[in-house]
Nucleic acid binder design. Structure first.
Length: 879
RNA sequence: GCCGGGGUGGCGGAACUGGUAGACGCACGGGACUCAAAAUCCCGCGCCUGCAAGGGCGUGCCGGUUCGAUUCCGGCCCUCGGCACCA
């Protein structure tokens, strides 16, 4: 065999062999060596957007997935690891405008290149199940399910104030607005009133919340908490303030009831005003009567929707001159329009209790409204300045019939005594329905036909898919579908008259809400063309392990859960939750170097152009450019970004060091959930290790090939110790595999090699066994080198092909030791080590411990109070 | 403000149910090989003290439980992430 490690050659050869053997194709009827059905394991990563080339985040994500998939396959599982492309979306449109190519071509070209990169990385993907979400064979089912949802009332159309992204020229869902800015464009979002389709995710709010709490123990706590917060359940009372306010046409507004929701109905006797949002019907009535009010409403409506700003914004309001009646006291209360009242939450109106609510307090102070204490929480109360404890729970006072009631009694009382006016206990959610209409071209066409006579008509199922034209090139002036007569013109499915197609497309989060259930429908399935998900989906789902970035903790993961429940209710699925276990991998960070320019601007430098000057202790002292030696500043680590020039192209890394070294570094640098700090020295270290593995195998190949199998009965003490170390390390590695702590798995591989090198003169049978363990433990991380050495050292004869070789388990006999080392402590401090026979009695161990030199030094002349013996671990002498 | 993670050598990180703190690697220092360099191999590497053997200190800070605490409990400090006028 080759004495040198040549990653390029062995990686290309291994990949060619796997491709030839179609090694990664899985079948639902996968059988084990005994011919029994294997247990299934579905390990899937969030699908990539085909932006052009793989980035480091992909490399990390899919390598974690691959390591799991390869190991579990050897453990005897029938493992599905698929891949596809989240291919709809704006970057394709932007690239189309820039380069004047159709989004379809740009997208498919990128997919072809990135697929090649995936194969170069050596990921064990079943490519027969690959698809792009822009394939009509896929998005047909988006349209199909959308129509089913319409029938079920889960999808519906409405016109409402929405988040408008002025840069991307489209509507955004609430989940897609981050700090008041579009999640993709970063542009401040505007408010617009636009008709669109919505999915009633709020119908599932309670179930989504309940399942987070009770059915997802395999999810990280932070993701579960984020989803709980997002759904935002509040339990309280909804009741009405009666009134007789009429609009300009003389109609009683909202049947004479101003509904509000409150979690603090116990403070109802402290209400001194009501406040409504600028968009509230009562505000509209007030506007017709007073131009100043109309002006205020306009200003508030146009004002920022940046929620972060709103939190710190000054409370402003205007009195309407309209009055409602307190449902319990009959007092007249004035209605105010407040800029802090959200039309999108509850009824867009609140009861004002300045005595016990910080916002109402600030509002009342500003406009000199009365403040009334109605809760006694046992602390000093003054209306001078707000104190946080004013919001504490307590006992009702100054509350007439409610005096002395605690919170529970008080809310029961309020619900009961407002019931005739529609009052009731109610649960309110922060979650809002999911707006899915996008005014963009490159997405799933919404399957609706607009007929002048019949209205909005669903496209008949037999006419699906509504195909998106592949040749249109957006020019920045909006959705090109609007001008495409071929697409627009159609016949009304009801009356047959000429009609126009809907030009909005579905949010791309629809595509990613269920793609993982299309991978499970192989194109060989009998019902592949007739069903959204084939029968095989029931075999693979729910997914055993999902892997992806924490950035999707709310958006994608909430939509996917909702979509699953909706499919279940349409009879397509029989489970409630799609992802049994979730792993959110950390980001890949890199160092940031910069220099302040003469005009105060900041100039960034690529880490590869900077060298670190260290002091005598090896600590970084200064940083300078490799080119001219001039000094630069270090700004810590941060996400890889184009502007900071600290991105690393994985392709460069693979070209220089090989895929195995790249994979090894990424797996070794940190546990999967934590961030990784990029380090070129670290990748070099990874390759150095692989070279050592290769060298060890090459130097010892002859004796290993011809070695007998291990005969444990004839080993001497040193050989026994060696074998014990090998199997103890294997035991640890297996434990770390089971808890997905892959960085310490790699550490175990390194220990195995260290042990082999130190014991290179041990009996060949042990070297053969040791290397067979190392290659199998290393293989899921670095499959190519393991594959090459496995066959070159003739392990295939004994264990079969590495892809399906039995996973190594530690030999219990090897873990047994005749003599064990114990730690001896005096008063809990380490004072020595002793070797005792495994079978030694407690008394014998105590005796040996007390005679240890280190122990004697610290016990001399002091009476021994007691001795604690932890079998197999330590002895602690207390004096 | 609320919710959820974290604070361990020069650095990334390890330590499973309370039982040898710092595994494994990186960086650094010394040595071997070499005309030389690279590569490779060997040794050292928490801090203080000591020629050494050894001793003292040490897992953000203060306290508690325990024979024994990075691990459990109470109170702080710092930091990262998410949410935030949600009534």
């Amino acid at each position: 065999m080759d004495a040198q490690y040549h990653p390029k050659q062995i990686e290309a050869a291994a990949q060619a062999e796997w491709t030839r053997a179609d090694a990664y194709r899985v079948h639902e009827n996968g059988l084990d060596r005994q011919g029994k059905p294997k247990p299934k394991f579905y390990a899937c990563s969030m699908l990539p957007y085909p932006s052009g080339k793989l980035h480091m985040g992909h490399v990390r994500n899919y390598t974690i997935n691959d390591m799991m998939a390869r190991q579990l396959r050897m453990k005897g599982f029938n493992v599905l690891q698929p891949m596809g492309w989240d291919a709809f979306g704006l970057p394709a449109e932007n690239a189309a405008m820039k380069n004047h190519v159709a989004p379809a071509k740009w997208t498919y070209d990128n997919i072809a290149y990135m697929k090649k990169q995936c194969q170069t990385m050596g990921w064990a993907i079943d490519w027969s199940r690959e698809f792009a979400t822009c394939d009509s064979a896929y998005y047909k089912w988006n349209q199909w399910l959308f129509l089913k949802m319409l029938e079920k009332g889960i999808a519906y159309k409405k016109t409402q104030v929405v988040n408008w992204d002025p840069v991307d020229q489209t509507v955004l869902a609430n989940e897609q607005v981050i700090d008041g800015k579009g999640w993709r464009s970063g542009a401040p979002v505007e408010k617009r009133e636009i008709p669109g389709y919505y999915l009633a995710i709020t119908k599932y709010a309670d179930e989504l919340l309940d399942c987070v709490a009770n059915k997802l123990p395999g999810w990280p706590a932070n993701v579960r908490a984020m989803q709980e917060n997002w759904i935002g359940k509040s339990v309280g009372v909804r009741f009405a303030f009666p009134h007789d306010i009429k609009d300009a046409s003389g109609t009683l507004v909202q049947d004479g009831k101003l509904f509000v929701f409150t979690t603090r109905a116990d403070t109802i006797m402290g209400v001194t005003f009501c406040a409504v949002a600028a968009e509230h019907p009562l505000a509209a009535v007030a506007a017709t009567r007073d131009t100043k009010i109309a002006a205020f409403i306009e200003e508030t409506k146009r004002g920022t929707v940046m929620e972060a700003d709103m939190a710190t914004m000054e409370k402003k309001g205007v009195a309407t001159g309209l009055f409602v009646t307190h449902p319990l006291t009959g007092d007249k209360l004035e209605v105010w329009i407040g800029n802090y009242v959200l039309i999108t939450y509850g009824d867009g109106a609140v009861m004002g209790v300045p005595g016990h609510d910080e916002r109402d307090f600030a509002f009342a102070k500003k406009y000199a409204l009365s403040i009334k204490q109605v809760i006694d929480a046992g602390k000093v109360y003054s209306t001078e300045a707000w104190q946080p404890h004013y919001a504490d729970y307590g006992v009702c006072i100054h509350s007439g019939p409610m005096d002395g009631m605690d919170y529970a009694k008080a809310i029961d009382y309020v619900a009961a005594n407002t019931a005739t006016g529609g009052g009731e206990k109610k649960t309110q959610y922060r979650l809002r329905d999911w707006g899915v209409s996008r005014q963009r071209f490159w997405g799933t066409p919404i399957p609706i036909i607009h007929c002048a006579d019949c209205g909005d008509m669903p496209v008949p199922y037999k006419d699906l898919p509504v195909v998106l034209p592949q040749d249109l090139i957006p020019d920045g002036s909006g959705n090109p579908l609007k001008n495409d007569e071929r697409f627009l013109n159609c016949a009304c499915p009801a009356c047959g008259k000429p009609a126009r197609r809907e030009t909005d497309t579905l949010d791309t989060f629809v595509d990613s809400a269920w793609y993982y259930m299309r991978y499970t429908s192989p194109n060989t399935a009998v019902d592949y063309h007739d069903k959204m998900v084939s029968a095989q989906n029931d075999y693979w789902m729910p997914m055993d392990q999902y892997i992806g970035g924490i950035t999707h903790a709310v958006l994608h993961l909430l939509y996917a859960r909702f979509w699953t429940k909706a499919m279940r209710d349409l009879g397509l699925l029989s489970f409630d939750e799609p992802f049994t276990k979730l792993l959110c991998q950390g980001m890949v960070l890199n160092h940031i170097y910069y220099r302040k320019g003469a005009r105060g601007g900041i100039e960034y430098f690529a880490p590869s152009d900077v060298e670190t000057v260290v002091d005598a202790q090896g600590r970084p002292a200064t940083y300078r450019l490799k080119t001219d030696g001039s000094a630069v500043e270090y700004d810590g680590v941060g996400t890889m970004s184009k502007s900071k020039l600290n991105g690393v192209d994985p392709q460069d890394m693979v070209d220089t060091y090989g895929a195995d070294a790249a994979r090894l570094f990424v797996m070794f640098a940190s546990p999967p959930e934590q961030t990784i700090e990029w380090s070129s020295a670290g990748v070099e270290g990874a390759q150095r290790y692989l070279r050592r593995v290769w060298n060890f195998a090459a130097t010892n190949s002859a004796i290993i090939r011809s070695a007998e199998s291990v005969n444990a009965t004839v080993l001497d003490v040193a050989a026994k110790k060696f074998r014990h170390d090998l199997h103890a390390t294997l035991k640890q590695a297996n434990f770390d595999y089971s808890r997905l702590q892959y960085n310490t798995v790699i550490s175990a591989c390194m220990k195995l090699l260290n042990a082999l090198e130190e014991n290179r003169h041990a009996p060949p049978s042990l070297l053969r066994e040791g290397l067979s363990i190392l290659l199998r433990v290393l293989y899921p991380a670095c499959p190519h080198i393991a594959h090459a050495l496995w066959s070159q050292l003739d392990y295939t004869k004994e264990f079969g092909d590495l892809l399906d070789a039995a996973w190594p388990e530690p030999d219990p006999a090897a873990l047994e030791q005749d003599e064990i080392e114990l730690v001896v402590q005096v008063n809990g401090k380490l004072r020595g080590h002793i070797r005792v026979p495994k079978v030694a009695t407690k008394e014998a161990v105590e005796h040996i411990a007390l005679n240890d030199e280190g122990v004697k030094r610290h016990t001399e002349g002091k009476p021994v109070k007691k001795i604690i013996v932890v079998p197999g671990k330590l002895v602690n002498v207390v004096v």
